[in-house]
Design a binder for these strands. Structure first.
Lengths: 115, 115
DNA sequence: TTGATATTTCCACAATTATCGAATAATTGG
DNA sequence: CCAATTATTCGATAATTGTGGAAATATCAA
């Protein structure tokens, strides 16, 4: 299994869980400024230790970023990682056939790279 | 947790596994005509019973479709499900801000619906 | 320095997921 | 109908993942 596949599996696995999916969408909507761990815990109503586990999981997977501001740790969604993910899944869609079943989904093919 | 979230978690979980990720990409590249279970098993070098487990998993999750042709079962990728997935993840990106960090990823927002 | 705030790490336990050989089912050609 | 082909289900086992209270770590304000 190549390294790109490993990264993609980690990212997909990080998103495939109730709390983490809600968390990612929350951060997507929060935009660049992100949210503190505490604010996220309040918004999602998840115990701090559980949330911390999930946040660490997502950071390891490279789909969220973290920075410290004072006592708070601020998390934000990594949009580039998201694009790369979709690019990997749809790579070489329909073997490059022009008249593909789903041209819209297929057309996103070669625009992104997994880091 | 709403129904859309459940479907998305199942789809993401279905993709977040070594063999299933390889399988999905194989089907994406195969296009509309799809591939038989046997052909997939050969291509991926996975025991038949294991592959069957993964194929069933993916069909349940709604990211691949199945039809019978003679003795063979033909599987193909569901592109629409893929689009819906990305749409859900990026919904209301950056709270609708025009000058979003990643306009390209964000712009895919309201074009798809989870069934 | 001390006390309060913000968050993580540790740990033990529960729950889910993956593996694959053997047995079973569905389909077809002769 | 029968043998061959194609693929699934069963079942026992191994491996991974999620949970949350309690203790530890980092930061700051006074």
């Amino acid at each position: 299994m190549d390294q790109a596949a490993v990264k993609v599996i980690e990212a997909l696995g990080a998103l495939a869980q109730e709390h983490r999916l809600a968390l990612f969408r929350l951060l997507v909507q929060a935009g660049e400024s992100g949210m503190s761990a505490g604010a996220i815990a309040t918004a999602l109503d998840v115990p701090a230790s559980s949330l911390s586990f999930h946040l660490a999981h997502m950071e390891r997977a490279g789909i969220v970023q973290r920075l410290r501001r004072g006592r708070s740790l601020i998390y934000s969604a990594d949009y580039a990682a998201m694009s790369a993910l979709v690019g990997y899944l749809m790579e070489n869609c329909c073997a490059g056939d022009a008249n593909c079943a789903s041209s819209s989904t297929c057309s996103t093919t070669e625009e992104s790279q997994v880091a």
